[in-house]
Nucleic acid binder design. Structure first.
Lengths: 161, 161
DNA sequence: TCACTTTCGATATATTATACCGCGCTCGCA
DNA sequence: TGCGAGCGCGGTATAATATATCGAAAGTGA
């Protein structure tokens, strides 16, 4: 584990497989929806999946440039906007950062647990939370269109693992 | 109702009372905590309470300048940071904006219903939601330190009022 | 091949937020 | 009542994040 990933205890997992799976799922989703999964979009998705920590748009930009590619902010934001529009990437509002979607292709209302020690963000799809939110909104006649649910704190490993 | 507040159906309320109440509560909270409730902080809090719609830092800045006051971004951010630190103001992450706390002085885990039509944000303190979130986190050994729960959509009035 | 649409490069600029410095006021305390 | 320590704030500069716009290139479908 590199020093840049303290306590990344989503360890014990084959991350290459994560990335490959995400890319494969992306191809599927885009094919199904008749969207073009271009080389740039693929590369950006790959960078977003580089780790399980949300990554900023400008960090992605740096990496694209490191590839030798000419890139400017719009390059990144366009790709991210596309990836979010097809549900392959989520934006973490409290960090102004982006993370790969854990359940691409499926409709889901996700929640994030963000560890402020190791930086990892875990995506949940907890039905009890989703249900409680839906009820709270309905009780007030509110029609929900978008949800931002982000809990920050210490993951199990960092809290004392 | 001004054209700048379409469908503000938190109507039927004496907003001056809202503001006065918020300022009084602020004085109390600061007194209790031995914090200084300065004129600037009071004015910023008042501006945040100008409506029930989240307001951006730079909008606050403009209003301060309209007062004839000399002010720069740090002026506003310092005041907002203070007000948030004592729990008088919340930040709405999905809007990069700020709103007065509906339950100052009380510990609470709030959720926001943000209407994309009229711009109002209603603060809830729904125990079922709070409970579901606590459980979801605990189940995974996650120690929660901060919560961001923001639902966007259409309020009862705007959805069809 | 041609017309059409989408994607991308490129430049400029907008929006939101913070780092830093120094002064003066306030408050606690002798 | 004077003093020192800390806090609040004015002010400048700059960082970090995001968007508007335009034209060229590449893919798509007839």
């Amino acid at each position: 584990m590199s020093s840049s990933t303290p306590h990344l205890h989503i360890a014990d997992h084959d991350h290459a497989k994560c990335v490959a799976g995400a890319l494969a799922a992306a191809r599927d989703v885009c094919a199904q929806r008749g969207e073009r999964f271009t080389e740039l979009r693929g590369r950006v998705l790959e960078l977003v999946w580089e780790s399980h920590r949300p990554i900023g748009a400008y960090a992605i930009l740096e990496r694209l440039r490191a590839d030798g590619r000419s890139a400017a902010p719009p390059t990144v934001y366009r790709a991210l906007d596309f990836l979010m529009s097809v549900g392959l990437v989520h934006r973490i509002e409290s960090l102004n950062a982006y993370i790969g979607c854990a359940h691409p292709g499926q409709r889901h209302a996700s929640q994030f647990l963000i560890c402020t020690d190791c930086g990892t963000a875990v995506e949940l799809d907890d039905p009890a939370v989703a249900g409680a939110l839906a009820q709270a909104a309905e009780k007030r006649g509110f029609k929900v269109e978008a949800r931002v649910v982000e809990l920050s704190g210490h993951c199990a490993s960092c809290a004392q693992g």
